[in-house]
Design a protein around this nucleic acid. Sequence first.
DNA 1: ATGAAAGCGCTAACAT
DNA 2: ATGTTAGCGCTTTCAT
Lengths: 353, 353
Amino acid sequence: MSGVTIYQVAREAGVSPSTVSNFLNGRPGRMLPQTRTRVADAIDRLGYRPNRAARQLRTGRIQVVGLVVPSVANPFWGNFARYLERAALADGYHVLLCNSEREPDRERRYLEELWADGIRGVVLCSSLPSLNHVLPLVEAGLSLVAFDRTAQAGDPGTLVNISVDNVVGAHLATAHLLELGHRRIAFVSGSLRSVNRRERFRGFTDALEQAGLDPAEAIVWSGGAEQEPYGDLDAAGLGRTAAHELLQSDYRPTAIVAINDMCALGISAGIRDAGLRVGEDVSVVGFDDIVLADLAAPPLTTVRQPIGDMAAAAFRHLLSRIDEAEASPSQSLLLRPELVVRASTGPAPEPRE
Amino acid sequence: MSGVTIYQVAREAGVSPSTVSNFLNGRPGRMLPQTRTRVADAIDRLGYRPNRAARQLRTGRIQVVGLVVPSVANPFWGNFARYLERAALADGYHVLLCNSEREPDRERRYLEELWADGIRGVVLCSSLPSLNHVLPLVEAGLSLVAFDRTAQAGDPGTLVNISVDNVVGAHLATAHLLELGHRRIAFVSGSLRSVNRRERFRGFTDALEQAGLDPAEAIVWSGGAEQEPYGDLDAAGLGRTAAHELLQSDYRPTAIVAINDMCALGISAGIRDAGLRVGEDVSVVGFDDIVLADLAAPPLTTVRQPIGDMAAAAFRHLLSRIDEAEASPSQSLLLRPELVVRASTGPAPEPRE
DNA sequence: ATGAAAGCGCTAACAT
DNA sequence: ATGTTAGCGCTTTCAT
């Protein structure tokens, strides 16, 4: 402990504890200028630092929000965490980070822990279609901002959803490949249950349909539907495996839409493993635009999420929910993604045989 | 709030609050089996969850440790954070994550905040040679484990240092290049002041000397000595710039030792920008072995840090420091790195002209 | 084996 | 303008 209490400060300054408290809580107008100076001096001299536990116990408030991500080992989430922290810090808040590893049970346990710690606002990065596992907490009063997950039918009535427009994003990616002349396009992802996977898949099939192709004939790889949940760390391994399998099939795709950049980088590695050239023999599009997309060889064409804006929006909404006495109605914020064309995509190769 | 207090539980169970408290604090032996059951039932029925603020206020203890990293946007740190969380969780601890962006002032402010929050143990990932800016906190009783930074002369007497053996690591990397026949080898890093940069540089020059080369003639690129602190995010950009500059110089290196993997990936991109082939025209070695090292094209030869072991060790040491009444003397733990040879390094090309 | 009661440091109503 | 005071929920002596 710093050990110094407001009582000691009060005695040192020759005032009462409540005056010190008033000073600390932004109500310096309630005292004479000279008193204010005396208190400030005493605080300095004693090196006083408020005890947050006591403050929290008394007020019930705490300047911490929770952040639950699948895994910070994925650079996309690491980056998001950093932006969220930046936004929080500007308002004097801390961020308590939790890795769910995409396990619903861990998500629930984490939210319960955070709640028990007095944290009243959490940004939950979950792509699960149902939020039933955390519903009791929300009903108890936990403010929740769901990130990377659009609103679903059964959602609690007070949820804020912040996400990129996945349908549009995947549509952009797929349309880009179609324009390049590709017709045998594969879609690669892990878990089928994730909300953004569904949406990105829809953007994918929509684009195919618009081009007059039959989505039913599209090549879809999901690593065996039962294999889930899968860790984020394995997104890359997943992509690599997918590439291996897809490329030795008879009906080999000339282009692949990946569920995210880590997966796309794995796919690219798998394509090279097979002795083929990325962007020439096989084109690859990712999703996210992590820093490494631009460093890859060839640089990865991808759909950029405006991650800084999204993090700022997430925190802003969270804060307003926490502060407001009564829960405002649910809303969704859908940000527009942007296609970033690099060298991992190129014209469809001439048909063989 | 969950709102339920031990008083309510006590009334529901027909016992006193202290009995409930005893039950909660692992002293069930102090009551009759039937009492124990009644309390357990009451807790279940009411959905009681202890209020941590109250517990902390009373005991002064809190089950949270701090983690200060340069930036989770760097996958190495994201991965480390995840491993540390895993270790902490196993002991019922949470991890409060802070990004210092390599700014000493942010490091200090964060540690002060953590201290004020009642947190008594922090893993500080700083590569600054001096820890003077946080000395007051350590003297006040903050348990500090310095990560990725070996012990320095002026360090506080109670510090635990956990790091990979940087000298050995860089030596391995450089010796590998020398064996491949390289003689014009460059060393690329950012800030000159960081401890691990110094050590890795020493491993580099040691290896050159052992091979009979004059380290004074080694090519060293540091982005302009005054340019610091630099963010981790820019490690890649830094490497890319370095490659551009080094490759258009007269005395062009045939191999480059990078301060870390992100930097190495940037260098690789820069080599390609110049129309050269990584691993053939110019070899590159990284440091860390992040997941993406294996996915790069060509896959990156690098020095692996045993990050899982290091994270577990960091938490273990931290916990023992926090628990012990009196500070045990300082110690350092230096883990052995391992060279992972991939395709970004190859035989030195025949001298031109 | 169980209970009563004090107090951790702070804030905010309510005095003065 | 400033002071007094009653708790917030919990743990922990010290009774019984």
